[in-house]
């Protein structure tokens, strides 16, 4: 009897991991950067593997649009930058749903040259030149126009080239508060003025994980594992040894440097992008329905949607988060 059990145990040990590895493709919305750090960390330090997931990260980029791949079934999870994409999906009956939000604050920001009177957010709308990329032009720029009086006359397409902004002192441009300012400082040799949209009412969740509704229904355990492992990945990235994760990101994006990523992590921490508010107590990835509704109402006021046009119950599900996953690891790493 004992021999049987031992043999079974050994067999389970050997065969165990082999059975449990689910192949997963996770697409991001940009080239690899520190703002994706937690996911790369979970790959690099084996967290995904420990949770039975064989994850391939598929980066986005300037001309790459990964979003249609999710409903088409070509990827399993998708990272998007704000809830507007999710609202649009539900409005157009695309069967996807948000399962977690890695960032508590959207790092979307507007940057300006110092000493041009753009230190106050209210002054930005009078800038003669606003460099906004297409993604922003069709989403939060509309909100800026209605809520904060920005004008289309100033808008010029931003093609992810810092040149026009650096050349024109009166110009403002978009960027991630934890990324572009670092590049601007490196190339333009000055510290830009940074205005976080989240500080002025753009209260969306950011870097959310989306999944197909059928995945959530049919394989909730898979979704839970991915969410949990990702949250733990973020804890380890922010507070632990992230060298391997950084190396992995440089492999995916050779133009990135270690210094830029470290500077970005520092900003993420100081600005409370990832681990603030709810996440501090309920774990990274935390979401609540009230905040989603509040953001939606604001967007309705801004004219992006009509009241009741989007069924908020289909926008996000909260069954996978708010469980304090990763808090113990964080306590160990930070000594708190």
């Amino acid at each position: 009897m004992r021999l049987h059990l031992t043999l079974l145990a050994v067999a389970a040990l050997i065969a165990g991991p082999a059975f449990a590895q689910d192949k997963i493709t996770f697409a991001t919305n940009w080239k690899a950067q520190a703002a994706h750090g937690g996911f790369y960390q979970a790959v690099a330090d084996g967290t995904y593997k420990k949770y039975g997931l064989d994850v391939t990260i598929q980066p986005g980029g300037p001309q790459v649009n990964n979003r249609p791949l999710l409903p088409a079934g070509r990827i399993d999870f998708l990272m998007t930058g704000n809830l507007l994409h999710s609202f649009d999906n539900v409005k157009n009956k695309v069967p996807t749903i948000v399962v977690a939000s890695m960032f508590q604050k959207d790092p979307q920001a507007l940057m300006a040259h110092p000493g041009q009177g753009h230190e106050k957010f209210e002054a930005l709308k009078n800038a003669p030149l606003a460099l906004i990329a297409k993604d922003g032009q069709f989403s939060w720029w509309q909100w800026l126009k209605v809520t904060h009086g920005f004008k289309d006359e100033a808008l010029k397409p931003y093609n992810y080239n810092l040149g026009p902004f650096l050349a024109n002192k009166k110009a403002i441009q978009q960027g991630y508060s934890v990324a572009e300012p670092i590049y601007i400082e490196n190339q333009g040799k000055f510290k830009p003025v940074v205005h976080l949209l989240a500080d002025h009412g753009f209260s969306t969740y950011s870097t959310v994980i989306e999944a197909r509704t059928e995945t959530v229904k049919a394989k909730p355990d898979l979704v839970q594992r991915f969410v949990d492992a990702s949250a733990i990945g973020w804890v380890n990235y922010l507070y632990g040894d992230r060298k391997a994760a950084n190396a992995l990101m440089i492999k995916d994006n050779p133009e990135m440097t270690e210094a830029e990523m470290e500077a970005s992590v520092a900003l993420m921490k100081s600005q409370g992008i990832v681990d603030s508010g709810e996440a501090a107590s309920r774990g990274i990835g935390a979401m609540n329905a009230a905040r989603v509704k509040d953001f939606y109402d604001q967007m309705v006021k801004a004219g992006l949607y009509k009241a009741g046009e989007v069924d908020l119950a289909q926008v996000a599900t909260y069954q996978f988060v708010n469980k304090g996953v990763g808090q113990d690891i964080k306590a160990k790493l930070t000594g708190k």
């Binding site: 649009n65 979003r67 994409h85 649009d88 157009n92 695309v94 297409k134 069709f138 989403s139």
Partner: peptide, 9 residues
């Protein structure tokens, strides 16, 4: 483009 970004196929 706008329709594409907003999934309004």
């Amino acid at each position: 483009l706008e329709a594409s970004f907003r999934t309004e196929t």
